[in-house]
Nucleic acid binder design. Structure first.
Lengths: 207, 207
DNA sequence: ACCTGAACACCGTTCAAGT
DNA sequence: ACCTGAACACCGTTCAAGT
């Protein structure tokens, strides 16, 4: 829907015309709003005041709405931060020696990034997973990375065949939500992830 | 803090005086508000409008606040519904033949009840778990039930020794949160619980 | 003692007027 | 084309006045 993506001008099908340019002040305002949103969400979580975002960005509230018609759009835009770093990491993990350890590290990294903007990442992620196949492109990237990592582990016989990447992503983000505000969140999350990882191993016939 | 608990008059320390009686219309209003809250939370989730609750109950908004000073108090009161039914079930499970199957059924029951008022139960539960040992008494009941069931399974050697009831409760409520709005929520939740249950089994030395 | 509902504060959202 | 901020709507919360 958005025509403002900077790096990948995939819109406008016919005629090799250049993608519609934004006025440079608009572009700069968008950036400012996004920065302000990052700060506000990190401080106050998913429900941060949009008027506060506008104040921090030094723009009118209308400008926030112009660039991000709904709060969800703003959340998803901030969510993209995590996707980018995780996507970069995924390439390495796909050629790592131990496919199971790679999956473990992939999930552990997700937990770490999930804490960055309070419950934002996990909430958005679960919401996007629920939307199914036609979800936001940001999510698709993560899903296909996850699918590759999970399938490699399954091919090596170290992960049970009856789960998919969506299951695994849901579980790890669920843990992030449940440990968010716990006294010793990170340690707790790591322990719970350990349980889940064991549960992902295939059941040997004799056990 | 509350002096309105009906079944257990544990307040008022000195002199064996009877616990302070409420006026009967107040008692009835409290019931009405609670019923209205159940309906509202079931329909609109945790964030349901308190004015709507007052309207449904046929009382002034002030009466809602008088009986339940904060939204959290109202949430916890509704949460009690689940505690009561789960607590009754726990007694049976503690004498069931298979301790592991008993744990599984305990958790499956939690998932079912968690769906009743949308994310309410899971949200409140996780919140109470985060408060630690001095949480609401409703939660303590569930925690001690869970502890007994988990410990029995551990004593029988069918659950790994390095987890406790809080871990298990957190995991199951996390799953409830993550599958709440999914297209096929119940089936998905059941599958994810299966993974977690496998993860709770002890690792045999040879595996 | 308890209830009521007007009054206040705050925030999300829209949109006519500006540049 | 984009930005601004006043205007509107809605909801949470308090409290003085009633019974």
């Amino acid at each position: 829907v958005s025509t403002t993506s900077t790096s990948t001008p995939t819109g406008t099908p016919a005629s090799g015309a250049a993608p519609r340019r934004q006025r440079s002040d608009a572009q700069r305002n968008r950036e400012r709003v996004l920065d302000a949103a990052r700060a506000a969400f990190a401080e106050h979580g998913t429900g941060a005041s949009l008027e506060d975002v506008a104040r921090r960005a030094g723009v009118g509230i209308g400008t926030v709405y112009r660039h991000f018609p709904s709060r969800q759009d703003l959340l998803v835009a901030v969510f993209r931060d995590n996707v980018d770093t995780l996507h970069a990491h995924a390439a390495d993990l796909l050629v790592a020696d131990d496919p199971f350890a790679a999956l473990g590290e992939w999930l552990r990294t997700q937990l770490q990034h999930a804490a960055k903007y309070q419950a934002l990442t996990a909430t958005v992620m679960i919401g996007l997973l629920n939307e199914g196949d036609d979800a936001a492109p940001s999510c698709e990237e993560l899903r296909s990375d996850g699918a590759a990592i999970v399938r490699r582990a399954q091919a090596a016989g170290v992960v049970r065949p009856d789960v998919d990447a969506d299951d695994v992503l849901r579980l790890v983000n669920a843990i992030a939500l449940a440990t968010e505000e716990a006294p010793d969140g990170p340690a707790l999350a790591s322990r719970l992830l350990g349980v889940v990882l064991d549960g992902l191993r295939p059941r040997p016939p004799g056990c």
